[in-house]
Design a protein around this nucleic acid. Sequence first.
DNA 1: TGTACATCAGTGAACGCGCGTTCACTGATGTAC
DNA 2: TGTACATCAGTGAACGCGCGTTCACTGATGTAC
Lengths: 191, 191
Amino acid sequence: MSRPVMKREIIEESAIRLFATKGLARTTIKDIAAAAGVTEGALYRWYDGKEEMAWKLFNRELDQFTRLVSDVLFDDRMSFDLRLGLAVQTIYDYYQYNSDQFAFILLTQHGFPEDKLLTRETEPMNLAVNFVGEAMGAGEIEPCDADLYAGLLMGVIMQPLVLHRYGKIELSPETPGLVTSACLRMLGFQS
Amino acid sequence: MSRPVMKREIIEESAIRLFATKGLARTTIKDIAAAAGVTEGALYRWYDGKEEMAWKLFNRELDQFTRLVSDVLFDDRMSFDLRLGLAVQTIYDYYQYNSDQFAFILLTQHGFPEDKLLTRETEPMNLAVNFVGEAMGAGEIEPCDADLYAGLLMGVIMQPLVLHRYGKIELSPETPGLVTSACLRMLGFQS
DNA sequence: TGTACATCAGTGAACGCGCGTTCACTGATGTAC
DNA sequence: TGTACATCAGTGAACGCGCGTTCACTGATGTAC
């Protein structure tokens, strides 16, 4: 093509947007190609197939997101509660400004076959476990089941975003702060 | 057939189990028929098609679950915190003893097309909103954004089950109690 | 500078397979008389 | 009681369509000399 920008990026953006709205299974190659203004074959220049493309995009987006979050979550120049608050803010900002990417990783995380069970250091759950473990070790929160509390933390932070995505609740600039407070109370943080 | 029990039930159980493990899209009619020990056509005696069957089963299972939960959640002979604790216990019991049904409603709730957006009185989210609203009205918890707090409540209660389903955390007999305590702390319940 | 060739993103038409669905049928059970 | 017919859950083979995928190709751009 004569256009300077590669169609590859357009294809990937279209795919992520469609995956995030219609879901992986309900999005066809034809859909993606049409949205990107490209023929169906173009996709195979860059990927072996639909499944492989989805999987690679998922990992790329998840990596980017978790890196962003862990950067503030484990910045030990700040106090425990401040780090949590900033992480929540980062997540909610990410949701607001990269809603397709966010919805894509959030909603398709369980849409892959079993053999794709991702176990990696940067996995969100591991982030939460490490964070709770650190806070417990530092005596900032009472001793507890770190795995369980990490799960609770994830639930509290993520659920409002899921519900917003499906039009069940509204978000406001105050929401991240309210969520953070709720987390701290739940963890029994002594403020 | 000569067997006294209707194959219909076997078909439905097989379908739910497969939907819960492989997901809606990755489960084929052939899969269901094979699991039920039946030919593919048998399914169409009872349902118009795969999608319709999934949708009807989903609503049936969701109704049963929410009825069970709302029975204890709104039993006004009990105190606020006791009702919450019993509801959590009910949910975790349901997860343990009807894991396929539970995973089915939990994991396919967002797998239907947009026009299937269920807005009903018995929807889990509405249960939570009403509960928080009641508790707030009775002065048992501080005034707050009922919708948001209902979402947080759902997140805390459900997330451990999702994580357990994917092998990320373990559950114990103490888990429901720990989850309930976490909920009460989060809500600022004055015990 | 022009010429010959290599590279490579993207085309467009075709393919074939797996899937959901259909339908004439079977055979067991129930019912009327 | 036996006979004739209706009902209906489930069969089994076929169908056709939509889907992901393939591949010979085009045409623009880069490169060697």
